[in-house]
Design a protein around this nucleic acid. Structure first.
Length: 518
RNA sequence: CCGCCUCUAGCUCAAUGGCAGAGCAGUGGACUCUUAAUCCAUUGGUUCUGGGUUCGAAUCCCAGGGGGCGGACCA
């Protein structure tokens, strides 16, 4: 960006005099001009402000671990070379204390003019907050006991041209935090922690799944038809094929093709895209983990859901106990299972069931403040009652089970009730985290369900699906009984990190583009 | 798409109709055990943008823009 910036962005003529000797003023432009001049000065004195590499002996956390019992006022013979960003500086005449930080930790640099020499001391003095440095020296502890590197050489690894945000308050403007995530990560400990937790969760999932014999696969993002969920897709275009394509809204249909192919246990952790609203719980692109297990049913899948998430919490934050809305909840406790029709019935005070006449259900819905669209089938009305009256009161992890057939076109009919499916959704803290079912594998029934979807779509329900002929062809080869699961990884990360907005666990959330040059 | 809130120095925030300020960062100076170092001095503003009301607008009004929250939409 800076390369194409306007002349007054940074190098304001008022801030650099013709002889280059003095810089007046302050503000961002003057600050950048001053630092850029420092880069030029270094180059003209033969020092490269952006060198190619640095040999580091240790990460900072390793050093802190190695010297956890160092006595105040002692010097060791442990010689190290470390690198990091200058976060704080305390200059007291012929001593300078710098705090640098790398990925693992922070450490204090003890820079004595007597040790590093006059020239070295001047170059350390000329460092700015934000610069990257590599130093070598021995490990010591100050009189107050602060673990430090007694620096005898210091090289600039990268000059920062732009000043850091406030060293104490950090960045709090959410707009800036999300647009300039790099700055957020530099100055906000919480931001770094949230993404460490997210990584730990995903890595824990991969380990658990590998241990249970699942194979990780990758399936297409570009779809000819966006199937596997009810959602509006993003539309794109392929030039050579000259055809409209959709970004995937689910992983489901390709993964089940692999079960047909005999892979037995597969999973994918991948980005999916839904062209819908943005909120604290929704980002247009988000990460879904889906798995499919041959010979399993929905009960097996609920069990693995509990294992995955409980283990992830343990791995990411060291405990399975979460604070949700002020309540301690232990994920290791069994998760309650409640039928959707029972929850909805309790909420409205009278039995609801998808076998009931549509008009009766519509009446119950309306008298409970739930408006009903003309094209909704009975099961859809029940789901709406559930969402309006039950969803928000769920705090602890709860499996809501037995969704009506008409809202579950890919799930298998319940073995004891032809109006319901063997499907569940996991809710925690009012948010849907997961969805799974015994997979429908009868190709003729699947065709009939697809045709109902298509008919509903043609009748004006834009989110409904279409008939996926290739998927039906796959099913005709025979898919073993299969349990399937989808987990919203972003929402699991929110839960375990204890944050209320999905933007706290998505590095670069979708935002409107910025207007002017920053 | 609708409602409410918000936008002031690089960052964090004051100023509520009457001279646009502080802390941090920056600059100059002092200091060989500081750690949000301290002390002295000091630079820095399109108060988001455009209109309007007023003797006078950061402040009030209108329109627009960004963001947040809630709703709508939406597994």
């Amino acid at each position: 960006m800076d390369e194409v910036s306007t002349p007054d962005d940074g190098a304001n003529p008022q801030t650099v005099s013709d002889d280059g000797a003095s810089i007046s003023g302050s503000g961002l432009a003057a600050e950048r001009a001053r630092r850029m001049e420092r880069v030029d000065d270094l180059r003209s004195s033969g020092v490269e402000p952006y060198p190619y590499r640095f040999d580091r002996s240790d990460e900072l956390a390793t050093i802190r671990e190695r010297h956890s019992s160092i006595e105040p006022g002692t010097e060791t013979d442990d010689r190290v070379a470390v690198a990091g960003r200058v976060m704080l500086a305390r200059d007291s005449g012929k001593l300078i204390f710098l705090t640098i930080r790398d990925r693992s930790d922070e450490i204090q640099l003890f820079v004595s003019k007597a040790v590093i020499g006059d020239d070295g001391f001047e170059s350390v003095k000329a460092l700015d907050l934000g610069d990257w440095v590599g130093v070598s020296g021995v490990i010591m502890a100050t009189r107050k006991g602060e673990l430090s590197v007694k620096v005898d050489s210091c090289v600039l690894l990268s000059k920062a041209i732009r000043p850091l945000p406030d060293k104490w308050h950090g960045l709090s403007d959410t707009d800036t935090r999300f647009r300039q995530r790099y700055a957020d990560l530099i100055v906000n400990e919480d931001a770094r922690r949230h993404f460490e937790i997210r990584h730990a969760i995903i890595s824990s999932f991969r380990r658990t799944l590998a241990d249970e014999g699942f194979i990780e696969v990758e399936t297409p993002v570009l779809h000819v038809e966006a199937g596997g969920a009810h959602a509006r897709p993003f539309v794109t275009h392929h030039n050579t094929l000259d055809m409209q394509l959709y970004l995937r809204i689910a992983l489901e249909l390709h993964l089940k093709r692999l079960i047909v192919g005999g892979m037995e246990r597969v999973f994918e952790i991948g980005r999916i895209f839904r062209n819908e609203g943005i909120s604290t719980r929704h980002n247009p692109e988000f990460t879904m983990m889906e798995l499919y297990q041959a010979f399993a049913d929905w009960n097996d899948v609920m069990d693995i859901t509990e294992r995955l998430i409980t283990k992830a919490a343990q791995d990411a934050i060291g405990t399975t106990v979460l604070q949700i809305r002020g309540t301690s909840i232990d994920l290791a406790d069994p998760w309650p299972r409640v039928r959707m029709i029972d929850a909805a019935s309790d909420a409205v005070g009278s039995e609801v069931h998808p076998s009931m006449p549509r008009e009766v259900l519509e009446g119950i819905a309306r008298s409970n403040g739930v408006s009903v669209a003309p094209h909704w089938a009975p099961g859809k009305i029940i789901e709406e009652i559930f969402e309006a009256h039950c969803e928000s009161s769920i705090v602890r992890p709860t499996f809501v089970t037995g969704h009506p057939v008409d809202i579950s076109p890919l799930a298998r009919v319940h073995r004891d009730d032809p109006y319901l499916t063997e499907r569940f959704e996991l809710f925690v803290d009012s948010r849907e985290l997961a969805n799974g079912y015994s997979e429908l594998n009868d190709p003729r029934e699947q065709r009939a369900r697809f045709e109902e979807e298509q008919a509903a779509k043609e009748a004006g329900d834009a989110e409904r699906g279409t008939v996926d002929e290739d998927y039906l062809r796959a099913l005709e080869y025979g898919m073993p009984p299969t349990g399937g699961l989808g987990i919203g990884m972003d929402r699991v990360a929110m839960l375990i990190a204890g944050v209320d907005s999905i933007r706290e666990v998505v590095l670069f959330p979708t935002l409107r583009p910025e207007g002017g040059d920053q």
